[in-house]
Simulated assay, not measured.
Amino acid sequence: MDKKLQLPDYLVNSIESFCEKIPLKNLKEASVRLSNNYLAGFVNKRLQAPLDHIAYLATRFPATFAACSSVFHQIKLKTDKSFETLLDLGSGPGTVVFAALEYFPSLKKIYIVEQDAFFIEFCKKTLRDHFPHVSLEVLANDIKKTELKEVDLITSSYALNELGEIEFNEIAERVFSIQKDLAVFIEPGTPRGYSLILKLREMAFSKNKFPLAPCPHSLECPLAKTQKWCHFSERLPRSSIHRFLKEARLNFEDEKFSYFAASNIEAAPLLDRIIGHPRKHSGHISFDLCTKEGRATQEIISKRDGTFYKEAKELKWGDCLES
Rank of each mutant, 00 (worst) to 15 (best):
Q115M: 11
P222F: 03
I143P: 04
L182C: 11
E165F: 00
L212I: 14
K144R: 15
D152K: 09
K228L: 15
L200G: 10
T155E: 02
I143T: 08
T146K: 02
K180Y: 10
I197S: 02
L160A: 04
H217L: 10
T126Y: 07
S239T: 15
A213W: 11
T155K: 07
K228G: 12
K144Q: 10
L198E: 13
I110Y: 03
F118Q: 01
R238A: 12
K228P: 00
L148A: 06
S157H: 09
C221G: 08
K209H: 15
I154K: 01
L107A: 11
T126A: 00
P132E: 07
E150N: 08
I112K: 03
K207I: 12
I178V: 15
F118H: 03
E137M: 08
V175T: 12
V151H: 02
E137D: 11
V151L: 05
C123I: 07
L223I: 05
I197Y: 04
S240P: 04
S218E: 15
P105K: 09
D152H: 08
P188L: 09
M203W: 03
R174C: 03
A172V: 12
D181A: 13
E147V: 15
A172P: 00
P214H: 08
S233N: 09
F205P: 04
I143D: 03
D116Q: 11
A140T: 12
K209G: 03
N141V: 07
K145G: 07
G189Q: 06
E121V: 03
Y111H: 08
Y103Q: 08
S233K: 09
K180S: 12
N161L: 13
E102S: 14
S206D: 13
E162M: 01
I171H: 03
L136P: 02
I154P: 09
H133R: 14
R128I: 06
V138Q: 06
K149L: 05
K207D: 09
P214I: 11
L212P: 05
S135Q: 13
A213R: 11
C221P: 04
E102F: 02
D129C: 07
P222V: 05
L236C: 06
P105A: 08
D181I: 10
E165H: 04
S239E: 13
C221D: 08
E187Q: 14
W229D: 11
F119R: 02
K149W: 01
E162G: 10
F122D: 00
K108C: 10
E165D: 13
F232N: 02
D142G: 00
T126K: 11
S135C: 05
G164F: 00
Y194W: 09
F185K: 00
P188Y: 04
Y103S: 06
L139F: 06
E102K: 13
N161I: 11
A183M: 08
R192T: 14
Y158F: 15
P105R: 10
L136A: 01
N141M: 00
K145C: 10
V175K: 09
D142W: 01
S135I: 07
E114F: 01
I154N: 04
S135Y: 08
Q115R: 14
K149M: 13
G189F: 06
K109G: 04
